[in-house]
Design a protein around this nucleic acid. Structure first.
Lengths: 331, 331
DNA sequence: CTAGCTGACCAAAACGTTTTGGGGGAGATA
DNA sequence: TATCTCCCCCAAAACGTTTTGGTCAGCTAG
């Protein structure tokens, strides 16, 4: 390239990057020759020199614990990943989906990423340790419940979903509202339960909480239904279930026992999925806005990467909406 | 690292990569020290030296021409991309989704990928030119209709879908079968039309073919319905429509004009989508097996990358299935 | 005793950039 | 004429590996 343009390597670099002092005519010629030759600086060599490859990593922790990257009907994560990839492109970055990079079978490229997005980190997440140790910037969706000092996370708005769901159910006449969470140690499960217990305490309700392994899917929901039915206490008249698959299972279980949804029990899911959309009746669900969240997370990470030391960006806020469906449509 | 282990840089490299001649004890010690320090060779530096970054690129051409990377209800590509990413990980690679890398706004990392998967290349696709010029191996899903010499592609089985759909429709009593394709210049559109016309010629049928822009979605389907209704010729009694969104639009258009599906007209879509699953009636569709296709494409590309010059792998075959639904359920 | 071989290790080159620290020529000033 | 100042440009270092082509010591064989 330098030979073709009749200048030094330095001048090529300066010309194409707009740095240094180069005569206008020279810079123009270099640019023209580069275009003609289809030349552009080798990204790897540039990466070696500048320690910036233009690559972002995405780790979706719930899929790690779930064991499968394509859980039946759960489209939240795929939509999240797709939107993140597109937004990264818009920012001039590539995005690589990765599994737990502490697990050892991570691709070699893992630690070469400029920054990471961690979706739903676990308590004291080792992935955050690894990245911090390697001085790789990261942004989380959901907080690490054991790491209060780590503030570069978004999605705190999910906390308010508990309140809005309870308000919705109360408005429809619910008296005794139960909560079903997953067992992953992430803030989505933990903080939702905390919020719920706070509400119960404030309203003199006996909290009714079940924790069920996410991996069990609809079957896990059916088990909860059986536990509810076998319990000495009377059945709650509304159930807020964080995962869509558990919700669908609970609904099916209660219906099999002769209960009607929503007449006898109302059901709300904390995240929308194919199961909640297509069960009978369809289940009222919180739309966790995967596209908007992904877009915000990528933009935030890129801002973090490209910001000066002194004016760091702040985490964006995401708005969630309740999709009201027949499972809470009374009267 | 070399200092910590008390050996040269060379010996570290040799020890960790199992190359060269290193005393067993030394190699062991180096490995231990590396584990202790959490050291692993910098992927970028290694990439610079070996020209292998461990990164695959994925370009989905229909989304480029569509202009949107999240077309409403079309989950084929997202599922394809997700499955490809996971399979790449299983092979030790990262996968980056990219837009048309010839468009200029491609991320710098684009040409640093070890290899590419091109989904549904266009006729004489410039992306293939670009990659070939840069000596980057690639695998396509669907062939480039203007590049018969390029054989590293899979998905030829879609050709047979035309026959099986026609067989299915004939079995259900169809006499006059129309075809609706898209206008993208890919093999999926072109070869399907060719197959259809061959069948028509062999069976003394007057071919009825419409080509409609993919970008118009369901509205485009409705337009086709109007054209069919306005035509002098009588309405076909079955329509094979390659895209799910066109199919849903045609069905809605015909129903609005008072025709019944499937009694008056049967409809089949060449690719499954949310529209075909949830329209009324649900539309019989070909399941293009995005996960299996993606997995096969990645495995094929990786095999290509890692193969010796002399024994190149052959493209795998994919099997597709017809999902029979009410839109062809007669009698 | 010497030449040759082998096993263990290492210095240096190469990969293609970016960045640093000049170098040299032309014009201006003394 | 000598010196100073700009303005352009460039050589070389550095990034962290892998790979090539050694060196050196200790043995073995002649």
């Amino acid at each position: 390239m330098a030979r073709h343009a009749g200048v030094s390597i330095t001048t090529v670099s300066h010309s194409l990057n707009g740095k240094g002092v180069v005569a206008k005519a020279t810079r123009q010629r270099v640019i023209e020759v580069a275009a003609e030759l289809g030349y552009s600086a080798d990204a790897i060599a540039r990466g070696l020199r500048s320690n910036r490859l233009g690559l972002l990593g995405l780790v979706i922790r719930p899929l790690d614990t779930l064991g499968s990257y394509q859980p039946e009907g759960v489209d939240y994560f795929l939509r999240f990943a797709g939107a993140a990839a597109v937004e990264a492109l818009d920012c001039g970055y590539g995005l690589v989906l990765m599994r737990d990079p502490t697990a050892g079978n991570a691709p070699g490229i893992a630690l070469a990423a400029d920054g990471f997005i961690i979706s739903d980190p676990l308590a004291g997440d080792p992935v955050i340790d690894l990245l911090t140790r390697n001085a790789i910037p990261l942004v989380a969706v959901g907080r690490d419940v054991e790491r209060p000092d780590f503030t570069a996370w978004l999605g705190g708005g999910t906390l308010r979903n508990v309140d809005s769901v309870i308000a919705h159910l109360s408005e429809r006449g619910a008296q005794r509202i139960a909560l079903v969470t997953g067992t992953d140690e992430n803030s989505w499960n933990a903080d939702s339960e905390n919020s719920y217990r706070e509400w119960a305490a404030e309203n003199n309700q006996t909290p009714i909480v079940y924790n069920q392994d996410e991996r069990l899917g609809e079957e896990g929901g059916r088990e909860i239904a059986e536990e509810l039915l076998a319990s000495d206490a009377s059945l709650p008249d509304a159930i807020y279930c964080l995962t869509g698959r558990h919700a669908a299972g609970i609904q099916a279980g209660l219906q099999a026992a002769g209960y009607r949804i929503p007449e006898d029990v109302m059901i709300v899911a904390g995240s929308d999925s194919e199961q909640t959309r297509n069960s009978a009746p369809p289940i009222t669900s919180v739309d966790l806005a995967p596209e908007a969240t992904a877009k915000a997370a990528v933009a935030y990470l890129v801002a973090l990467l490209e910001a000066d030391e002194d004016n760091q960006p702040l985490p964006p806020e995401i708005a969630y909406e309740l999709r009201e469906r027949a499972s809470t449509q009374r009267g």
